[in-house]
């Protein structure tokens, strides 16, 4: 598989990306390649730079300009280089679906309209500004809602949905977008365990069926191991691990993160984890 992957244009290529906020370095020379069709977890404690990295890939933030290199390419098209966004960034963004921790839906608009905004990138302005979405896009939006399992909420206001439903609507938006890459920034951090499982399963299904590249930020290693074959681990803005998720044993995590490992290895609730069961047995 790796041989085939080398001939392909990488879905995401980040080269020596640096990002400094007022006080500290958020990204410190990050370089990585992700191939089309991969499902990759990006893990790290809070403040490790994983969300920052994802936002840079979508062109929602720009890296340091002084750094030599500091470029990002998506599907062979430049997103940014030396702290400047590419001039055709909107066309590239249209190919990247972004799923946010706080869903970022427009609460007062119907779910259907929120999902239809996925097609804005390819519609002529007279259609998008008047809200006259073509029938084809409306069908696509409804199919996307059916696929993520919330078609019955199509004409409700997005704010009336539960967190898990809102996140699935946000995923449906990327389906209408026909995104070739889905970047999910902590998509399950604000959700209960059951909704988290459904959202991760939806992403895994889209990855398997549509061959969409999925990169998902997580801070629970259990989810990474269960749903993503490959994991990239960040610590203080640097990549400290890039390989098979199955290699991330508790001892490997402790080596990488020391005391921070506890934050990352919090077990998935309700999944009969050995550690919690033992703890309960001892406590009982």
């Amino acid at each position: 598989m790796t041989k085939a992957a080398k001939v392909m244009v990488p879905a995401i290529k980040v080269t020596r990306l640096h990002k400094t906020f007022n006080c500290c370095k958020a990204l410190d020379g990050v370089s990585l390649d992700i191939n089309p069709g991969e499902m990759v977890a990006l893990i790290g404690a809070s403040g490790s730079g994983k969300s920052t990295l994802l936002r840079h890939v979508a062109g929602l933030a720009v890296g340091d300009s002084s750094a030599q290199g500091g470029s990002i390419e998506v599907m062979g098209r430049p997103v940014q280089a030396r702290g400047r966004l590419a001039s055709d960034i909107r066309a590239t963004r249209a190919r990247i679906g972004f799923v946010f921790q706080q869903f970022n839906l427009v609460g007062r608009l119907p779910v259907m309209t929120n999902v239809l905004t996925g097609s804005l990138g390819r519609l002529p302005s007279w259609r998008s500004l008047t809200g006259l979405f073509p029938l084809e896009d409306r069908e696509r939006a409804f199919d996307a809602l059916t696929r993520v399992g919330i078609s019955e909420t199509a004409w409700q206001r997005a704010s009336t949905l539960s967190g898990g439903q809102q996140q699935r609507a946000a995923i449906a938006r990327t389906l209408v977008q026909r995104a070739e890459i889905i970047l999910a920034d902590e998509p399950i951090a604000s959700l209960d365990p059951e909704s988290s499982r459904r959202v991760m399963e939806t992403l895994a299904t889209i990855n398997a069926e549509d061959k969409t590249t999925v990169v998902v930020c997580l801070h629970q290693v259990d989810f990474a191991i269960r749903y993503c074959p490959r994991t990239i681990a960040l610590k203080k803005g640097q990549i400290v691990f890039d390989g098979a998720s199955s290699d991330l044993t508790p001892s490997a995590l402790r080596d990488l993160y020391g005391a921070e490992a506890d934050e990352l290895s919090a077990p998935i609730q309700g999944s009969a984890s050995f550690i919690t069961d033992t703890a309960l047995a001892v406590a009982g």
Binding site: A58, L60, G97, L105, R173, Q177
Partner: peptide
Amino acid sequence: PRPVEGIRATGAN
């Protein structure tokens, strides 16, 4: 600002 960023991420102008 978050919903606006959600729209921006779809490639909207």
